[in-house]
């Protein structure tokens, strides 16, 4: 018991220290590395709270993919960084920002500390009704059955984010290929890794998706893994990023949402409500939605990292 307390205490101190360091450090690149470390430590904290689903998502998206996005942003902004640093905001606005951020933190802490004991929870209702979905993982049950509308909107938001990135395309390059051209170094280490790892990564991604019905896992974690494998192959120069004007690409990006909506609307005549599943067919339908969403999420995340088109098709 004491060992567990010691571990949790050290973890909390470490998370807070990394968070403060990430904000205090002057170099943007170092701050991003601090942020990645913060994400991985947070994933450990979720494991300690027995929320393995959240831990997997945090490690894959919070620690991994978002950090890659930020690293690319830092590299892109490097040329203008000193100019941006020269115009530091004045003392008053910095003080105001600190007061604002501090009071939000204090309010959040107050809310958490004054929660009634035991905290309000819907977990018993979920546990009582999970059998109707024939899923073993309560988190997947909530995400795709009890609160499916939230998950549907999340997938839509991701596509909107990609559209926002694409709007940064200069007019003559519209429809072109995103990202720089990566030269293939046939005998290089990266090409070797990009040939060796993707078969393994794809198997693990499909496993994470499949096992998500009964154990921690699901489309977001699996999609992030697939996106990572795709990006590895692109950055090693083994495959080219597709031009964003391709019809198959546009179709695949919305595939998950379309399948989700189709099954959702089919629920109106068949099960009596939008996003309701017919009795006894919940699990196969949920897995169909998850599989289609995994492909769309993988493509969307990969294209988000690659950024707006930078060269012709």
């Amino acid at each position: 018991m004491n060992m567990a307390l010691l571990f949790d205490g050290s973890l909390i101190v470490l998370i807070l220290a990394v968070a403060v360091w990430t904000m205090a450090v002057r170099n943007s690149f170092a701050a991003v590395i601090g942020y990645a470390t913060y994400g991985l430590l947070l994933a450990l904290a979720w494991v300690r709270l027995a929320a393995v689903d959240a831990a997997l998502t945090e490690a894959a998206i919070g620690g991994g993919l978002t950090s890659v996005l930020l690293i690319r942003a830092v590299v892109r902004l490097r040329s203008s960084e000193s100019a941006a640093r020269a115009e530091t905001p004045g003392r008053v606005s910095r003080l105001l920002a600190a007061v604002l951020a501090g009071s939000v933190t204090a309010a959040l802490a107050l809310v958490v500390l004054t929660l009634p004991e035991p905290a309000p929870t819907l977990a018993p209702q979920v546990a009582a009704n999970i059998a109707s979905t024939s899923l073993g993982n309560a988190v997947t049950g909530v995400l795709l059955s009890f609160r499916a509308i939230d998950t549907l909107l999340e997938a839509v938001v991701l596509v909107f984010a990609l559209i926002a990135v694409w709007t940064l395309t200069p007019d003559p390059l519209w429809g072109g290929r995103p990202g720089p051209r990566y030269e293939l170094d046939e005998n290089g280490m990266l090409a070797y890794l990009a040939r060796l790892l993707p078969p393994l990564g794809i198997v693990v991604a499909v496993y994470v998706l499949w096992v998500g019905a009964d154990l921690p896992g699901g489309k977001f974690q699996a999609g992030t893994l697939l996106a990572a494998m795709w990006l590895l192959a692109i950055m090693a120069g083994l495959v080219e990023a597709p031009p964003i004007s391709q019809r198959w690409l546009r179709g695949a990006l919305v595939l998950g949402t379309v399948v989700f909506l189709a099954i959702g609307f089919a629920g109106v005549p068949l099960a009596g409500a939008f996003l309701a599943y017919p009795e006894g067919h919940a699990k196969p339908l949920i897995i169909a939605i998850e599989a289609a969403s995994m492909l769309s999420i993988a493509l969307t995340l990969g294209l988000l990292v690659l950024g707006p088109p930078e060269r012709g098709a």
């Binding site: 280490m189 990266l190 070797y192 890794l193 060796l196 790892l197 393994l200």
Partner: peptide
Amino acid sequence: LLVLLAGATASQLIAR
């Protein structure tokens, strides 16, 4: 084994 592979690759890339 995966950490070995990733570690070796990352070290090679940084060293290069």
